[in-house]
Design a protein around this nucleic acid. Structure first.
Lengths: 187, 187
DNA sequence: ATTGCTTTTGGACATTTGTCCAGTACTCCC
DNA sequence: GGGAGTACTGGACAAATGTCCAAAAGCAAT
């Protein structure tokens, strides 16, 4: 709970307000491989990751394609499913053991509609999310898989320790065979 | 001005409120090829496109790579540059003659901070944008260039009339040579 | 240490996509 | 109508990436 309250305090809430908002979030733990959300189901919760790593992926022709990997102190939700309350087009699962604090869609709506300070905070979250996703989309277009691998190497080297290479290949959008070639090139 | 006011009215503003908000937007026209924003400059305006088609692109090794193409009745801005007020990483130019209604960053800040109804509206815009970008990013990962071409064919066939094939190739992320092959396959 | 299981590597070949370029078609202007 | 410029196509070859698979390396349990 600590880092959630701290997060709200850093975002301009007083200690009491932060406590009040955080109270609407309930904790939930995930074992490695367990799903936070499955394709076809509608996302009812927005979560804040307090521990662990979560992977977004979808299936095409039987194999997995990763769209995001999100770690601690970030919000977690299948955006279109949660915002529009429609069935998700993707799966979200814990890559290792994890823990989140989650708020129900209805409670969030209530905060959005009746709490002016929360509105401002929520706008900030959306703007930040927008920049992140736009940037990630830009990287997808601008960089080759090899360049993205190198970017990961110096931006989040800890990721490379935490996740098996086959998942990394899926994140980069190449086959494990080709990731092996990329690693070879770089040496 | 008409469709801008209409847009605000449809979004929950009264006629008078819509008028008041729209008054903060100034019109600006663009000749074919003219830039709305250039790399390295900071985006000071958020625009609403009333006429025309705008292309986002960046240069790498001397050639253009398209990241977005946006048409009428949509908002236009280099997100990270406008939101964070930092230099843009991309160019935005008119693909044909165009006209926009644009609001200055400071005026938007004022609306965001002092107009409760506008806050709610702005949240809606951000959420919608988020879904669009997330979806487009998803398509980038999930679909091949050929599948994206086919999607364009039935989702916005008018685009294929309006823009030269070489731009279309850049939108799809392939060379004109390869787009020619794709078109051949489909016949 | 041995066994069995999973992960990673890399060879051989196929497919996809890019590069270079020449030919054809189309448009605009005089 | 002729010529200059631009857009589109497609051949020939090269480079990048995928597929299939077997060998090697790592790892956990006994």
């Amino acid at each position: 709970m600590k880092n959630l309250i701290a997060y709200f305090q850093q975002s301009g809430f007083t200690s009491g307000e932060a406590q009040g908002v955080a109270d609407l979030f309930k904790t939930k733990t995930f074992a490695k491989g367990e799903h936070f959300l499955e394709e076809g189901k509608t996302a009812r919760h927005l979560a804040f990751i307090s521990r662990g790593l979560f992977q977004f992926y979808f299936l095409k022709d039987g194999d997995e394609h990763t769209t995001y990997v999100v770690g601690e102190n970030n919000f977690l939700a299948s955006l279109s499913s949660f915002i529009s309350q429609i069935p998700a087009k993707e799966y979200v699962r814990a890559l290792g053991d994890g823990e989140v604090w989650q708020i129900h869609f209805n409670d969030l709506q209530h905060l959005k509609n009746h709490n002016a300070k929360f509105q401002t905070f929520y706008i900030g979250v959306l703007e930040h999310l927008l920049i992140c996703i736009d940037d990630s989309r830009h990287k997808l277009i601008a960089l080759t898989a090899e360049e993205r691998y190198e970017a990961l190497l110096d931006e989040e080297p800890e990721l490379l320790q935490q996740i098996p290479l086959q998942y990394l290949a899926s994140i980069l959008g190449v086959t494990p065979r080709h990731l092996s070639r990329i690693r070879n090139n770089i040496r």
